[in-house]
Design a protein around this nucleic acid. Structure first.
Ligand SMILES: [Zn+2]
Ligand SMILES: [Zn+2]
Ligand SMILES: [Zn+2]
Ligand SMILES: [Zn+2]
Lengths: 168, 168
DNA sequence: TCCGAGGTGTAATATTATGACATGGCGCCT
DNA sequence: AGGCGCCATGTCATAATATTACACCTCGGA
């Protein structure tokens, strides 16, 4: 079953095509994961997640480090460590095509096959699970005797907002 | 329709699970592309392509530069330039999940949707086109009003050879 | 109290990729 | 032949992304 496409959010103009994430929800999911693993949901982890959730768009690790730096300089390695935790918690994904990271407010069940749709105009990412894609992947794998473990599916293109409201 | 899986090569031990590419075929495709664009198929481009074809596995750009270096040092930037040409020619693909490059001996028609299956044991990559995956992607895109341009589909897992012949 | 697991802060380094610029070959026009 | 434009090359430099190493800290259990 796919996520709700959430098509209703078009028309919001807080910031050009910005689709910020429900920060509370994603944060509580991270906290739950931490608890379940007996690990702390530390300040650094919270700060990185909060920034990504507020941004609503993918950010590079060094960009995150930059934004989080105030009096103290936050080093990239600290960001990478937080990102690793958050990815394991399922709250953050990495875009392989851009080496960037974004917050996710979906709850991905076990073997769900998720497609990341990346807008080349505004940079926004939408996620959708597709059972058809999943079956297609299992199909090609079976044909070649390949045992699939983890798929990476990214679709570059143009989102609905940018199609209707050119370049900007 | 999928490519020939070439499963018969199991048991060959020239080099663990090596599936080298038909160098002549891929080279002539590159040459044809060059001609069609009025560009030269230069020595550097030939050397990079030949190395990738012979290797049969993905290589990092710096690894290629390393292998091609003899008396003269081949700089990474030269390799990237050659790779750019070869990717446009459709002879080489980039694996986003590993930032590595591999030769391809298939002829991908227009909008073919190709899945890269990457073995995490031996590193080999198999390609297969899937119409079902393509339809799935068009489906999720349509649902969200997204206009898909270029898909990146990589499947990490274990190839048939490595499944039958454990770890090694 | 001691110990160990995990987190932090910091420096250093590795890996991947691009920018800038002078040079050289090679067609093409005059 | 001479000049010109285009593209590739060689070389240096730098940007951008990611990991390793290590000393220190803190918390919680034996
Ligand atoms: Zn997600
Ligand atoms: Zn957009
Ligand atoms: Zn291919
Ligand atoms: Zn394998």
């Amino acid at each position: 079953m796919a996520h709700d496409p959430d098509q209703s959010s078009r028309g919001v103009h807080a910031d050009a095509h910005r689709h910020a994430i429900d920060a509370d929800a994603v944060q509580s999911r991270a906290r739950a994961y931490a608890t379940s693993k007996g690990l702390p949901f530390t300040a650094m982890r919270q700060r990185v997640l909060a920034l990504l959730a507020a941004s609503g768009k993918p950010m590079a690790a060094y960009e995150i480090a930059e934004k989080l730096s105030d009096a103290r300089r936050v080093q990239a390695v600290q960001v990478y460590r937080a990102l690793e935790f958050l990815q394991e918690a399922g709250c953050v994904h990495r875009l392989a095509s851009q080496s960037s990271y974004f917050a996710c407010d979906h709850l991905h069940g076990n073997g769900e096959t998720v497609v990341f749709m990346v807008c080349s105009q505004c940079g926004a990412v939408q996620e959708a699970a597709s059972d058809l894609v999943a079956r297609g992947l299992r199909g090609v794998a079976k044909t070649t005797g390949f045992k699939p473990l983890h798929p990476i599916i990214e679709l570059e293109g143009e989102c609905a907002d940018c199609t209707s409201e050119p370049v900007r």
